[in-house]
């Protein structure tokens, strides 16, 4: 984004805002669960370096290209929450729960950065709200980043309400809902012009399969 001929790092700003939002949510959630402030601050101090830098480093190791990938960031954050849960256990896996609940918020806000930066763009589209990136393809495109942002922020709000009633299964519900949304919205991305199914969709399907099988297995074991 250019303001007064100076390029403003809007992408980085949105990523940082996304992490700040997630940290604030995690802090408030854990304070409501009456966890000690010291433990919460220690956990939040892990979220930012592990989530942000960790995903950058893992992307660099796998791809030799330093960027941010949503699923890699998600896995790194989940591993961080599981590690902290093992080291400093809480009742009902609160650290893992709040991290899972914060994922859609994190993704939703960071997608705004993608919209302004001009990456992860959608299919060619001439209708309402189409976007043209003059430094990129220079054709009108579908604003998939805005749609993903709205959908995932909406999912975050919805999951907060669901958490009040079905807090036992909230981790599975969050994974199912977010993976399904990601799978469905990926069809509107520019990558689908050349591919039948993308890597993100394969990962989404695998996650859906694993979680649904796990839920069925638990129900059968309970019976």
């Amino acid at each position: 984004m250019t303001i007064n001929q100076i390029k403003f790092p809007i992408y980085m700003t949105c990523i940082i805002l996304a992490f700040i939002g997630a940290c604030v949510f995690i802090y408030k959630y854990l304070m409501n669960k009456k966890i000690k402030k010291k433990d919460i601050l220690l956990y939040v101090s892990m979220i930012v370096p592990f989530g942000l830098l960790g995903s950058l480093i893992v992307c660099y190791i796998i791809d030799k290209n330093m960027g941010l990938s949503s699923y890699i960031g998600c896995f790194v954050l989940i591993l961080t929450s599981i590690f902290y849960e093992k080291v400093n256990p809480s009742k009902n896996l609160e650290y893992v729960r709040c991290t899972m609940l914060s994922m859609p918020l994190l993704y939703g806000i960071s997608k705004l950065g993608c919209f302004f930066a001009g990456c992860c763009y959608g299919l060619p589209y001439n209708g309402l709200f189409s976007v043209t990136y003059s430094s990129g393809l220079n054709i009108p495109l579908f604003p998939i980043q805005l749609l993903e942002s709205l959908v995932f922020i909406g999912l975050f709000i919805g999951l907060l309400f669901i958490n009040k009633k079905h807090s036992k299964n909230i981790i599975s519900i969050t994974i199912i809902v977010c993976a399904f949304a990601k799978f469905a919205l990926d069809f509107l991305r520019y990558d689908h012009l050349t591919k039948v199914i993308t890597t993100n969709q394969i990962i989404s399907l695998m996650l859906l399969f694993i979680v649904i099988v796990n839920m069925i297995r638990k129900k059968l074991l309970n019976k």
Partner: peptide, 24 residues
């Protein structure tokens, strides 16, 4: 570094890989 780059070089930040290019 980002601010200095933006002010003096004006073109070191581009696209989705902006953050990666800063780090590199």
């Amino acid at each position: 570094a980002v601010i200095a780059c933006a002010i003096f070089l004006r073109d070191c930040l581009e696209g989705c890989q902006g953050l990666g290019s800063i780090i590199s």
